[in-house]
Design a protein around this nucleic acid. Sequence first.
DNA 1: CCTGTTCGTTAGAAGTTATAACTGCACTGG
DNA 2: CCAGTGCAGTTATAACTTCTAACGAACAGG
Lengths: 218, 218
Amino acid sequence: MVNPEAETPRARYRAQVRTEIKERAWEQIATAGASALSLNAIAKQMGMSGPALYRYFGGRDELITELVRDAYRSLADTFHAASQDGADVTALAYALRDWALRDPQRYFLIYGTPVPGYRAPDDTTAISSEIMATLLDACAALPPGGPATQFDAHLEDHRDWADGHPAPPAALHRALTFWTRLHGVLSLELAGHFTGMGIDPAQLFAAELDDLTGAPAH
Amino acid sequence: MVNPEAETPRARYRAQVRTEIKERAWEQIATAGASALSLNAIAKQMGMSGPALYRYFGGRDELITELVRDAYRSLADTFHAASQDGADVTALAYALRDWALRDPQRYFLIYGTPVPGYRAPDDTTAISSEIMATLLDACAALPPGGPATQFDAHLEDHRDWADGHPAPPAALHRALTFWTRLHGVLSLELAGHFTGMGIDPAQLFAAELDDLTGAPAH
DNA sequence: CCTGTTCGTTAGAAGTTATAACTGCACTGG
DNA sequence: CCAGTGCAGTTATAACTTCTAACGAACAGG
C-alpha cells in the first residue's frame, strides 16, 4: 500500500458495505427491536449469505456496539445543532424529544433496558460527556432558581462527571434533573404507557420542561 | 370430576411445576436479562427435557407474559403494603425504589424497553390502575402546591385514567410527575448510567422526592 | 504475469423455539 | 378393585439462530 491514508477502492467498498449493513440493521431494530436483530436476515436482504457479514463485523454484539456508538454520535450531533444559535434548554429539550420520537428503538438502544453482561465501550462515555457539556452550557445560562439543596452540596464534592465545566452546583443539579425528568416522560411515552390513559404526552413533556426552566405558570 | 372447585392432585402438581418454572425463569432473567431467557435451559435445570415445558406454557411469549403479570402484581402488593398505615407519598417512593433495586430486571420487565410487536394483556392495565389508585390517594393527601398549570387544565378534561378517583387535577398532575420523575431517576440508575459519574443515585432520588413533596429545602 | 490478500461461498457445529407422535404412568369413574 | 382415559414426559424433526472452518474466486499491487 503506497499511502495508508488514501482510501483504496477496496477500503471504500468495505466502508460502503459496512454502512449498508448498519442501515439494514437500523431498519430491523426500528421494526422488531434490538433483541430480534438477525445477522442472517440482514445478509439475505443484501443478497449474500450468512457468514459473509463476519468479514465486516466480529459478530452480533460488535454490530450492536457499533450501532450504540452511532446512536450516541447522532444524539450528540443533534444537541450540537440545537445549541448552534445560543444555548437554550428548551431548544435542547425539544431536540431530544424529536430525536427520540423519530426512532424510539434508537433511543432505547441507549437509555433502555441494559443487557446484564454488556459493557459500553469507553468512547461512548466520551460522547456522553460531550452531550452533557452542551446541556451544562444551557443550564448555566438559565436564571438562578431557588435556594441550594442538600443535593447541591453533594454535587459540590462530586462534580468530576462535569469534566471541568465551570457551572455552579445548582446548574449541575438542573442538568441532572433535566436529564432524568425528560427521560422519565419520554421513555414512558415511547414505551406506550400513556396510550391507554388518554393524556397527551407532549403536554406532560412541556409541563415538565416549564417546571425545569422556571416557566411563567407554576 | 365431582367438584370442579377442589384442587385435584393433578392440578396441584401442575400448579407446583408452573411456579417452579417461573422461579427458574426469574433467576435467569435476573442474571442474564429477559431476552436471554431460555426454555431449554429451564427444562434442563429442572431435570426434564425441552418440549415438556409446553405442557405448562404455550411458549416463550406466554411465559414472559405471565412473568410480567406477576411483576405488576408484586409491585401493586408492595404499594398496598406501603400505604397500609396512612397514604404517604414518601413511603410509596421508597417502597418503589426498594422494589426496583431488589430485582432490576423485574423493574425493566414492566417499565423497560418495549418489544414492538408485544401487547400487554388487559388485566395488567387493571393492576396498573390499582397501583395508580394508591398513588393518587397519597397525592391527594399532600398539601396543595403552586398555582394551577396549563397541564392541570388538560387533566381536567382527560381524567379517565384516574378511574373515578375524586382527586383534584393538581393531585393527578402530582401523581403523574411522581411516576415519571422517579422512573427517570430509577431507570437511569438501574441501567448504570450514573456509575461512572461518581454521584449518589440515592441522593438524587431523595432530592427529586423532596421537590415532589414540597420538602423543606427547595 | 504472478502472487497474495480479501471477499463470498458452502458445510457444519451448537444453540434456540416449537410441533408431532409415541410411551407410560396415574388418576378417574364405575 | 379394575378398566379406561387423559395427561406428563419422552424422543424425533423442522426451521430458525450465531458463529467457525475450509474452500474457491476475484481483485490489487509488484
